[in-house]
Write a protein that binds this DNA or RNA. Structure first.
Lengths: 207, 207
DNA sequence: GTCTATAGCAGGATAGAC
DNA sequence: GTCTATCCTGCTATAGAC
């Protein structure tokens, strides 16, 4: 009944909704089911959230905030191996895999109007790839676009796909998930990461 | 009334369903809407398809068959530049972008039981990457798993993501789609494709 | 804050005429 | 093959008691 309970209930709803959305998709999940699995009354959900959209948007805003916090966290002392850094990033993203799946599903839809997926990409890129994202105000130069495309399609996309498809891939190919993580890290190091190492701090691959 | 009409109607339904599924997702699309937009009666859909699932499964089987045909098509004479080959593959995939979006959305769901996404990946990998996929019968060796993981996460995934996110990316970053295609091809060449060139057995193209 | 009850409608699916 | 009409379930959302 106090603020504590309010937040607990709200968080319980969000947690269950996140699981169900990632399991069955947003439109495939009913408020009834969320209420049932969260052990709360259906009407209570409408006390805490305006409508169904409000639930998923709250989840998106939450993950964006958490990613921002992660990217501005205290960095450990000394130089960290780039591979080690990626491993940490993967561990973080893995713990958010459900909402990332939902975000990806929704961003694939044509009607999707919010840009959480790109926002999320920018945070990951800025943070882990150590690339300075050009300020989004003002016109984006062709060089910036080239850089962002590179980071997005050969950096962020493999990373995020690894996180969201890891389990299914392991099951399908009867592969130990830990082995898969090693395989992925090796490939990622040999492709995206080594393309950075070759050409100085900011990547400018141009003949 | 003849077989011709039957196929025309069936195909019209499939075409509209594909558009709507990619626009609004499978669960976000109603049979009513498909019927309305296809200009046919709702009951007619149930004459041609067992249920809603039958529609999406037909679409998945169709794209798999088309991809198989594409991969066994007559190859043009002479050596083709690897980049040119990828451009062709992208053009093919782009023409199928709607169903690929749907396939990706569905494969992200936890409850997704069919493996069309992985089947599709194997076709693209086998075909365009010129990699011999290990026969899926029998246990898969660690080396095969490593190879497949590499091709999947740093080859297929960027390729397919480029196809399905190209338009949204261009809009979001105010980038000309044709420029983006160039940027992507450059990055893809510098990462995934050059990782093949370095390490021997397959492929021999390098400027 | 949390519940009961229900409105109100849209969805998937079918029966049966033509 | 195609249409009209309809069933009925399950959905989102709200009113109102406690």
């Amino acid at each position: 009944m106090s603020r504590n309970d309010t937040h607990q209930t709200r968080n319980a709803i969000l947690k269950v909704a996140e699981e169900l959305f990632s399991e069955k998709g947003f439109n495939g999940t009913s408020i009834n089911l969320i209420a049932k699995k969260a052990g709360v009354n259906k009407a209570l959900i409408y006390y805490h959230f305006k409508d169904k959209d409000d639930i998923i948007n709250s989840l998106f805003e939450l993950i964006i905030r958490e990613a921002e916090q992660y990217s501005t966290r205290a960095q450990p002392e000394g130089e960290m191996d780039i591979r080690e850094k990626i491993e940490q990033e993967i561990a973080f993203l893995q713990s958010k895999q459900n909402i990332l799946k939902v975000m990806m599903m929704e961003s694939l839809k044509g009607e999707d109007q919010h840009n959480y997926f790109f926002q999320c990409a920018e945070l990951v890129i800025k943070n882990e790839m150590e690339v300075n994202i050009p300020a989004s105000e003002g016109p984006t130069s062709a060089d910036n676009q080239r850089l962002m495309a590179h980071e997005f399609f050969t950096g962020f996309v493999p990373l995020i796909s690894f996180v969201v498809f890891r389990e299914k891939w392991s099951t399908y190919y009867h592969c130990d998930p830990q082995d898969l993580t090693r395989f992925f890290l090796d490939s990622f190091t040999n492709t995206h990461l080594s393309s950075k190492a070759e050409s100085g701090p900011q990547v400018e691959n141009r003949p």
